[in-house]
Computed example of a mutant assay.
Amino acid sequence: MSIYKKVLNQQYDRLHPMLQKRYNFLNQAPFHATGVMKTIKAGPKFLYPLLWLGIKIKLLFPESGTDIPFKIINTPLAGPNGEEQIHWERIFYFGTKVRYFNALMSFDSDRMLIKDYLGEPSILYSDLAFTVSSEGSLKIESRKQRLVIGKFEIPLPSLFQGLATVTEKYCEEKRAFQISVDVRNPLIGHIFSYEGEFNPHDME
């Protein structure tokens, strides 16, 4: 059973059937898809030094744009203790520039949430809460976050957190997945966002 079926529990059956297939990882097969981001928006310019640093660890970037090609690869892995992990690789193509937004997720059975380590190497940790809407779309929200420095993880005060809200759904008319991501800080406001569509490879 995938980590997403575990965290959603009975809610999983309310997901749109295509979202159920997407998050099932049957036979531990990776999920591959390509698409176009209708919009990508970086935060205010004073954050650019931080966003440029994000390029080096495959977490965030300063570029904005419209109609940006991208691909997503979700790969099931086994962690050091045998726990199931899902590696998220999101790749954006700004002309000749290639940018990433990568993470490694696993399931916390005690707290019934997803553990999300962001960047490579990871410098940020976030609890993720998963819920299903009445229309069968998936909503993912950041909760508590920690700064990761080697083996140490330091809780971040709310004023320093970048909290993400993700909505993913399947559009029957377009036969495509639709995704929106919005990362905000309580003090600064908008940090990073994107919205677009993608089509899976080898998935009926």
Rank of each mutant, 00 (worst) to 15 (best):
M1P: 01
K5M: 12
K5Q: 13
K6V: 03
L8A: 03
L8M: 09
L8I: 08
Q10P: 04
Q11M: 14
H16M: 06
P17T: 13
Q20F: 09
R22N: 05
R22S: 01
R22C: 02
F25C: 06
F25K: 02
F31E: 00
A33M: 05
A33I: 04
T34D: 11
M37E: 01
I40Y: 00
I40Q: 00
K41E: 11
A42P: 01
A42H: 03
W52R: 12
W52A: 08
G54H: 03
K56G: 04
K58E: 03
L60I: 07
P62N: 13
P62M: 12
P62A: 08
S64A: 08
T66V: 06
N74Y: 14
T75P: 00
P76C: 11
P76G: 08
G79Y: 12
E84Y: 15
Q85C: 09
I86Q: 00
E89H: 11
E89R: 12
I91K: 11
I91M: 07
F92K: 01
G95F: 06
G95P: 05
G95K: 14
T96P: 04
T96H: 15
K97L: 09
K97W: 04
R99E: 02
Y100P: 00
Y100N: 03
Y100F: 15
N102A: 08
A103T: 04
S106E: 09
S106I: 06
D108I: 09
D110L: 14
D110M: 15
R111H: 09
M112V: 14
L113M: 14
K115C: 14
D116A: 05
L118T: 08
G119F: 02
S122P: 05
I123T: 09
I123A: 09
L124A: 06
D127P: 01
D127E: 15
L128R: 15
L128N: 07
T131C: 11
E135V: 08
G136E: 08
S137V: 10
K139G: 05
S142T: 15
S142E: 13
I149K: 12
I149E: 03
I149N: 03
K151Y: 06
I154P: 00
I154C: 02
P157F: 11
L159M: 10
G162N: 04
L163T: 06
T167G: 04
T167S: 10
K169W: 05
K169Q: 07
C171G: 06
E172R: 15
K174D: 04
S180H: 12
S180K: 15
V181Y: 00
L187R: 13
I188N: 06
I191V: 13
F192K: 04
Y194L: 04
Y194G: 02
E195Y: 04
E197P: 02
F198S: 01
F198G: 00
F198Y: 13
P200G: 11
H201P: 03
H201S: 09
